[in-house]
Structures are given as structure tokens and as C-alpha cells.
Amino acid sequence: MIILDKIIAVHSYKGGTGKTHISINLATSFAKHGKKVCLMDLDFRAPSLATFFSSKEVECWLNDYLNGTCKIDKALIDISNRINGGGKLSVVLANPSTEAIREMSAKDRKWEMRALGRLLALRNSLLNDKAFDYLIFDTSPGLQYSSINAIVSADLVIVATTFDRSDVEGTKRMLDELYDLFEKKTEIVMNRVLYDISSKSGKNSLGKKIEDMYQTPVLGMIPCFCDVAKAEGAIIFVQEKPEHLFSKIVDEMADKIERNNSV
């Protein structure tokens, strides 16, 4: 049985590895190439998509859907007008209020079990019924309930990591003790690479080094860009700076996933 990579969870061991930035740009890249995409904020401890995609017109949060108090349709916000290309991009936001963060962190195991059920149900409600091509989950780092729920529900886990030693060690442990246990297809995105990967040979040898280090395929390697840091997370690079190397790398990653799905 071939499982297509339709539900993608972007996860990491440590915080600050670029998960949200990668998630937003990957979702936009798919949408720019004509796909119908839904980006979801599953980082309930530090929601960030609400800041990025203005939360003024939110009728329903992802929190409400997982609480069982609203249907997923009500939580979908169509932001296709913010991107070029023929695709569709929707977001489902996590409630960033302190009260909501506190409430989400106090949920018990039974609630988490039902939340998992509701996340699993998205395959039917969004992929099958609403014909979305991709669901992208932006998760919180480490072993959080919401992140593991997202990983269990996903077809592909993109692990955002850096060369930071504690990050490398933690990521290795998660590969062995989390993703492997759930038999998840996992790919690495090495972020903030300081090595020269402008040449093909440089890129290949670094790619090989990362694959050997993690024993996991590499989806992409992103150099450390000062422009990205300077933008302060205020722009979608793939949309506003399509010629930037960062955007091209994200486009390549989207293309790789797309090609895997069409085999």
C-alpha cells in the first residue's frame, strides 16, 4: 500500500530551528504551484500563525475544533488573496491568548486522546471531502502532546534541525525513540547551514554528511541568511522574494515532495 505524503508535520527537538518559517513558506510554495493547502498551528504553547495572518476575523480557533465545540469548516480562514498563482491557501490558527495557552497546557490524557481522534478525522474532512492537496502542521518542539498527536496523524514528518550539538543529539534520540516507534516517514531539513553549499559538490558532500549523521534522508539544506533574520518573520519569502535563494530551496523541497507523491 503506497501512502502519499499529504499530511505533513513540521517538528523539531529544540525551539527556534525555523519550523514556523519553513511551514509558512512550504505551504505558500505548494499554493503558488496550484495546490489547495491548509496550514495549521499546532503550537498551542506559543502560537505564532495568528500574529502572522492577523487574527481579527477568527470565528473559530483550532483549540475549539479540538475541544469539539466547532466544525473544522468554521476554523478555516481562506488567505488565497495573499498569494500569487492558481492555488488556494487556508490557515487554521491556534488561540494566542494567555488564557487559551494555560487552558491547553492543562488538558488531561483523555482530552488528548480525543484530540488525536479529531486530528485523524481531518484526513476525511479536509483531504477527502474538501479536496485539499496538503495539510501542513506547524508543531511545538520536543515531546509535547500536541506535537506527538500531529506526528501520529501525519504521513511525513519534516524535522527542522541545526548543527547545534544539543539539537543534533536530541534530534537523533527523537528519530530513534519517537518517529521510528510510530513508523513515520521522516526527512531532515538542516537549517542555518554555515558551510558553503553554492557548488554542487559542496552541497552533495554536506547532504551525505547529514544523512550519515542522522541515518535519515535530507529534504533540504538552508544556509544561514541574514536577510531572513532581518525580515523579522514579517514576510513570506516564497511570495515576496521568489528569486531569493531561501525561496528557491523551499520551492525545491515542495517539488521533491510533489514528485514523491506522483510516483
Binding site: R109, K110, E112, M113, L116, Y145, I148, N149, L181, E183
Partner: peptide, 17 residues
């Protein structure tokens, strides 16, 4: 005994599957 992800993680492989 709710079947949450932490419970799934602690199960033996054959039962988890």
C-alpha cells in the same frame, strides 16, 4: 486507560501497531 499518544509510545511494538 485512554489510548493517548504517550500510552502508545510506552506499548510494546506489536501492540502499538
Amino acid at each position: 486507560a485512554p489510548l493517548d499518544v504517550m500510552t502508545l509510545l510506552s506499548m510494546p511494538d506489536h501492540l502499538r501497531k
